[in-house]
Simulated assay, not measured.
Amino acid sequence: MVDQVVRGTTRRVERVGDTIRRPVAPWTPAVHALLRHLESVGFPASPRVLGFDQEGREILTYIEGESGAAGWAKVVTEDGLRAVARLLRDYHQAVAGWKRDPDLLWASGIHEPGSDPNNPDEVVCHGDFGPWNIVWRGDRPVGIIDWDFAYPAPPRRDIVYALEYLTPFRGDAECVRSLHYAKPPNRRRRLEIFAEAYGLTSIDGLVDEILAGQRETYETVRRLAEAGAEPQATWARQGYLDHLRQRLQWSEELRSLFD
């Protein structure tokens, strides 16, 4: 049993046999609609919705394998990086064209800016596609978990988010000390490997978009914290804003590593 914090609310996640039980949230119907669509098109890497238990918790199938902190070591190799890029591409292809209900409520809010359920250039992004949310069996990624942050947007938003962690936009010392790299990574090459495996024709603009995402995250957390919103106010008291500022400063000062 683990505690998961989503938008300031602690949710107790429990494994029961071959299932996962989690408290529902306002966006649970939207996530269930997404997962049922993925099941209907035969996408194998998402959990299946089994309904609700007597406590009112959602029931999802458990995907056997390694995830969480173990995922960081899996994406260090070029083969692992390629496999993750293909998994994200396969997900985007599976969700493309889904005629979703335009009134579904997602965790990020209803009616995303520019969101149009009939827009062919928009999908429902996973929203938190990082190494910690990928399930592995050996060297093969077999599942994507924790869909709470799914939201409608162009698929490139998932790509840019993922690349901050997969490139990674982290210092050499942190890569070696905490992220399982034997030596500092060749970040530009990793950008190129991911882009090629996903099917992008170039990496043009990706670095600028990742930096823009880091700035947006910092400003959003800062603004909400100053307004007293939670959990952002608590994050600020705990030093998270300083952490975000340092990450952004590192990315801006060492941008040459990616060009």
Rank of each mutant, 00 (worst) to 15 (best):
R7H: 11
R15Y: 12
D18N: 09
V24Y: 00
P26N: 10
W27M: 00
A33H: 03
L34I: 05
R36A: 03
L38R: 02
V41Q: 05
R48L: 04
F52N: 11
F52G: 03
F52Q: 13
R57I: 08
I59A: 01
A70P: 09
K74V: 07
K74R: 15
T77A: 10
E78A: 13
L81V: 06
R82Y: 09
R86V: 07
R89P: 08
A94V: 03
K99S: 15
R100I: 01
L104S: 00
L105Y: 08
A107W: 02
G114P: 06
D128Q: 06
G130F: 01
G138W: 11
P141V: 03
V142T: 13
W147F: 04
W147D: 00
P154S: 08
A162P: 12
E164N: 07
L166C: 00
G171C: 12
G171Q: 08
G171T: 15
D172A: 14
E174S: 13
V176F: 10
P185F: 12
E192C: 12
F194G: 05
A195G: 10
A197R: 07
Y198N: 13
G199F: 11
S202V: 07
D208P: 12
Q214W: 15
E216D: 15
T217V: 05
T217C: 00
Y218H: 15
A225N: 08
E226D: 15
G228T: 09
A229Q: 14
Q232A: 01
A236V: 04
G239P: 14
Y240I: 11
R247V: 13
S256M: 09
